[in-house]
């Protein structure tokens, strides 16, 4: 069996940037801000590459849905080691349900055995798309993965849950979403960036899928979070304990 792994990746504001809310409250400032591949998606790409290196997969396809700027993120995915890329071009960002619908159409065409994606995009912090895609495909899912083992048509995935760890056994094809401890992604090297320029990258207009992308949500306003009042620096443990007991009254 020739197994293809699809890795959906998203271009987001880099995790080191402290975003600012626009003064008209329509959103956050993204002009002239450093953009990167969503960190969880880097982990997803890395996992796919390791599975291919281990002989468990033959082809890795990275997909992004977004404006033309998102092609840069696909090139990064190719430089990391993906074989092929698809850019589904949209005029603006779509909600997870619509992203999942497009991904389903692409997956139907491509016949993948496994989809590995991030658990959460660190811009909108939705944590939805993987689960939605799995539902639309009627595939099993393993979210928040910290370990993936494939054998035959089964995937044993260890998941990070609130109480500790859980292992689920999935019959593939399946959707896996990554958590931080799954692996440590490699760095892009210059020779690989050069090689990536020659790898195939296809662009498909989102309109060609005949889906309805009307937003389900209307963003009424984006505002600053409430500020915390400024605190004090105490001089000693003694003073700290005194303040906690007698001023804040949070300990006895």
């Amino acid at each position: 069996m020739i197994m293809k792994i699809i890795v959906p990746i998203k271009r987001v504001v880099d995790y080191n940037v402290k975003v600012r809310v626009k003064s008209d409250k329509s959103g956050v400032e993204t002009a002239n801000v450093k953009m990167s591949m969503n960190p969880f998606d880097e982990i997803a790409v890395e996992e796919a590459i390791r599975l291919r290196e281990a002989g468990k997969a033959q082809e890795i396809l990275v997909i992004t849905i977004g404006t033309s700027a998102a092609q840069e993120t696909l090139r990064t995915g190719l430089a990391l080691g993906a074989d092929r890329a698809i850019h589904v071009e949209t005029a603006s960002a779509l909600e997870p349900i619509n992203v999942a619908k497009i991904l389903k159409k692409v997956v139907d065409q491509e016949k993948a055995g496994l989809i590995i994606m991030g658990k959460q995009a660190i811009d909108d912090d939705s944590n939805q798309t993987g689960q939605m895609l799995a539902a639309l495909l009627d595939w099993p899912q393993a979210t928040f993965a910290s370990k993936v083992e494939l054998s035959g048509d089964q995937a044993n995935v260890t998941r990070e849950i609130d109480g500790g760890l859980e292992t689920v056994t999935l019959t593939m094809p399946a959707v896996i979403t990554t958590d931080l401890r799954l692996n440590e992604p490699r760095y892009v090297t210059l020779p690989n960036i050069m090689k990536a320029k020659k790898k195939p990258l296809d662009t498909i207009p989102a309109d060609s899928f005949n889906l309805d992308f009307d937003p389900r949500h209307q963003i009424l306003e984006v505002s600053e979070p409430p500020e915390r009042g400024s605190g004090i620096v105490v001089e000693s443990v003694e003073q700290l304990v005194d303040k906690l007991k007698n001023e804040a009254k949070v300990i006895q």
Binding site: V13, K18, V19, V21, V28, I122, D123, D124, D125, P215, R216, H217, Q218, I219, L220, E221, V222, S223, E224, P225
Partner: peptide, 16 residues
Amino acid sequence: RPIYAGNAMAKIKSRD
């Protein structure tokens, strides 16, 4: 709901 690690708060109206 918070977005961008709580650096912004989005007020959202659902049409669903």
